[in-house]
Design a protein around this nucleic acid. Structure first.
Lengths: 181, 181
DNA sequence: TATTTTCCCATGAAAAGGCATGAAATCCCT
DNA sequence: AGGGATTTCATGCCTTTTCATGGGAAAATA
């Protein structure tokens, strides 16, 4: 059996994910504007990966686990996370009675606190207000590919982050657009 | 993970379910009002998943396994639960004599304590009184996607739950609607 | 008849989609 | 390699559609 993109299905289940979704990784960066209505272009290089991975013109956005930014990925990756959650639930089955509590919290975090956002033919989304607030996104959005997922930063917050590479990246992208006095 | 013919690459049998029903996952959240007549809009993003999974304009609602809220899903997922129950029954066969007791209890819970609720063309249901009571739903309903299923909370109960993410979510959705002083 | 339940229409807000533009990047052909 | 032509992108504006929710008529129940 072959995929539309010509790749064969190496193994089933979890490995199937790795064979396809992780075949294409997010890398690179871009700085785009958020307009008055919260509309925002997803950079073309991100869209091309998203569509190759999942065949859907949509991204899933959530708060980043540790950093003050958003974390995003394609629907295929979301399915991967779901399967992973279920697997962990089975593993924990029959241990402490709190297994299920942990499971449901994880599921809520992975799916309840994220939003599936389709983008239009021109590649734009409306950043959901809740995400905009969580990611502290104002009128500029810095996209940063990090392999399996990508991040969306307020570039000015990125400028003050502990990660020097990130600071440099943000500074560069801002200068490039003639921003930052 | 898609083939040119649109089928997913997953295992057969049990996982055949994942190929169809779990191809689309519930995520995101919304806070809707229950009006004086007891009517409640199912958020559009939930309906779209329900209909893609089962092409029926109905949801199945039951009490949540561990949390003080309701758990809901589409009819296809209900079939999945049935198969899952049977599988577990077989697995437990020949262990302790209580296997069947457990099985029937589970089946009762899965099907007896749930209700199939069709929604009208505009996407509204009338929450069955028993469910409304079990879920302690008053005049607001917080929908939370959790992947394979979604939850329906009384937002004020969610505000006091142990899951911090959920509390935050409820607080945000209430604020957004100008509720909660 | 009185009361509840079901269906249909109305409405305002928000989102989706389409169209246009200017700038940048890419291609291509000397 | 240079330079002009074409394509791709990001982004602004405007129109159409969708969505949640309210109210009322019609139908069913008591």
């Amino acid at each position: 059996m072959r995929f539309a993109n010509g790749k064969s299905c190496v193994r089933e289940g979890e490995a199937g994910f790795q064979a396809v979704e992780l075949e294409h990784l997010f890398n690179g960066s871009a700085l785009n504007a958020v307009d008055a209505k919260g509309r925002l272009s997803i950079p073309a290089f991100i869209r091309s990966i998203v569509e190759r991975r999942s065949d859907a013109k949509a991204i899933v956005v959530g708060a980043h686990e540790v950093d003050p930014c958003l974390s995003a990925y394609d629907r295929g990756y979301a399915r991967h996370l779901h399967i992973e959650n279920e697997r962990r639930r089975l593993n924990e089955e029959g241990k402490t009675g709190s297994g299920d509590v942990t499971h449901f919290r994880r599921a809520r975090r992975t799916f309840g606190l994220t939003e599936d956002v389709p983008y239009d033919p021109s590649g734009r989304i409306i950043m959901p207000p809740m995400m905009r607030r969580k990611g502290r996104i104002e009128d500029l959005a810095l996209f940063v590919g990090v392999g399996g997922t990508f991040e969306i930063w307020n570039p000015f917050i990125a400028l003050e982050h502990g990660d020097e590479d990130l600071r440099e990246l943000a500074a560069y992208r801002l200068e490039e657009k003639g921003l930052r006095p």
